[in-house]
């Protein structure tokens, strides 16, 4: 039951992604062709909100409602960040969906994205199996 709040937040997130058309293959194609401001406005304003609210949280030394100091673990920078980023970018432009939208699209009735999800799970598994052999 302690996870119910994450179900709620996920639902809100999926609702926003869908209403803002971030889950649309057409919108992603439009973005990569620089033919509309929409997606840049979404990402840009999300970032402004994220940066400002994190700064405020740090300034106020806010604690999580569950107790505990709020801590953010950084992600390592290595060759994989760039190479993996490129590979994901190729897939993003093909499917028009990053991982969040894949889940929202399935819920939205686009059942073909179950195939995309299973393939993404397969890709994740493949990375896990090959990890030691890849440059990082």
């Amino acid at each position: 039951m302690k996870n119910i709040k994450y179900l709620l937040l996920g639902t809100v997130f999926g609702f926003i992604l869908t209403k803002t058309e971030v889950i649309s293959w057409f919108r992603i194609q439009e973005m990569f062709r620089f033919q509309s401001f929409h997606m840049y406005g979404v990402i840009g304003s999300a970032l402004v909100m994220g940066v400002v609210s994190l700064q405020i949280m740090k300034k106020l030394n806010m604690h999580a409602s569950s107790g505990g100091e709020i801590k953010i673990e950084g992600k390592d920078l290595n060759y994989g960040t760039a190479i993996g980023g490129l590979i994901f970018g190729l897939g993003w432009a093909i499917t028009g969906a990053c991982p969040g939208p894949i889940f929202a699209l399935i819920g939205n009735g686009h059942l073909a994205f179950i195939v995309v999800l299973l393939s993404a799970i397969g890709g994740t598994w493949l990375y896990g199996a090959l990890k030691e052999k890849l440059p990082h």
């Binding site: 980023g85 190729l90 994205f113 195939v115």
Partner: peptide, 25 residues
């Protein structure tokens, strides 16, 4: 579009340690 694209998403996001949510936002 569905299988190859999906594999690239899963492989690439794990290799880069994040996607548009975890990295970009």
């Amino acid at each position: 579009f569905m299988v190859f694209g999906g594999i690239l998403i899963g492989f690439g996001t794990r290799y880069a340690d994040g996607c548009t949510s975890g990295h970009t936002i």
